[in-house]
Nucleic acid binder design. Sequence first.
DNA 1: TCTGGGGTCCTAGGACCC
DNA 2: TCTGGGGTCCTAGGACCC
Length: 426
Amino acid sequence: MSPAPIFAIADCNNFYASCERVFQPKLNGKPVVVLSNNDGCVIARSNEAKALGIKMGAPYFKIEQYAKQEGIAVFSSNYALYGDMSQRVMQILASFAPRSEVYSIDECFLDFTGLPQNLTEYSLEVCTVVKQWTGIPISIGIAPTKTLAKLANRLAKNGHSHMGPVLDWRTIADTDAVLKTIALDDLWGISRRWKDKLNQIGIHHALALKQSDPKYLRQHFGVVMERIVTELKGISCIALEEMPTPKKQILTSRSFGERLSDYDDLRAAVTHFATRSAEKCRQQQLTTQVLSVFIHTSPFDTANPQYANSATIEFDRPTSNTSQLIAAAQQGLKRIFRRGFSYQRAGILLPDLWSANVAQISLFDSGESNLRSDQLMTALDDINRKHGKRSIRYASEILSKRWQMRQQFKSPSYTTNIKELLTIQI
DNA sequence: TCTGGGGTCCTAGGACCC
DNA sequence: TCTGGGGTCCTAGGACCC
């Protein structure tokens, strides 16, 4: 019989805020927040910012005054930096376990099954090494199921562990007493709506959920809830997934820095999104059979007329060719664009992806023209990698820049752009 | 004036076939 | 033409995650 599984989840504390601090150590101990794209709302907060009452998702314009008054350091999001820091952290974490699963930009599941070490001490060492080598503080939760590991991690983060940033669920004397104190929406996979629905049938905390009948819950909530209950009981049914599963869809979309009503501005935006989508496809060695382009006005702008529409274009054969995606995107946009609206957002969705290797070749295709266009795309990607993103672009993308995001407080891309290296003055 | 972006999974219901 | 069951495929929408 194989040993009972042991999962750990390592989670970077306030990840985006911590990344910014690595390069500005004077911000240690100070409140820091990071804003979403377009500097719209708060998506990451240091502990000090949380203590000041800054809420996750708070619109920036509503807290701007307060932030200034309290001396909160504010950053636009810098995904080049966070992505690169994430890779460094993940690489270190993976070296501490036979198997690992990168779960999100700041979280990684580790398989600790059968390790001979004292797992609490071992995990404390992992935290120390990650902090020393990257500057990023992490917490680790350990348990027989992913759901309980996530919970243990949360408890450790909130200071409920005697071992600092690490909590092994199995060292807790009375786990049911702990579960009784846990709100339903503090569990992985349960959000406000389900919490309310569970409340309605008399389930008010994690212990009550654990003790309820999985089959009954399956009928009313589906198989996802059944799994959560089973995992709370300590029976693992959500496995570690080492191999990242190939993407099933690719979405590239943005809110604009300002409202747009001109066709040419939207065309430039949509061209950019199509270009990015094609690049993502090629990076992941995928091709797409279908492209869908959508535009809409702001749902918050109730004073003006609303409009939203999308158009879907099918290709003769699956492709990842930038020119083809742009052509389709512009064709679709022409179909759905209406004059007289203030557009807030547009995007490109590729909902039907194929592995580039198994892409079917249509009967009437000449193999040679495919090869030539593949070579052209490879050359394009190479040049842009070597000389910086966007060195070579399609003309219709650069006709307008008005759609671009507001990023008032963006830090340099210290680790990914040679021109933005950290400089130190002595 | 100002409210993110990119995903996944599951389910229900309709269309269609045998 | 009618009746009925069972299966598959597709899509839209709802729920969740970070």
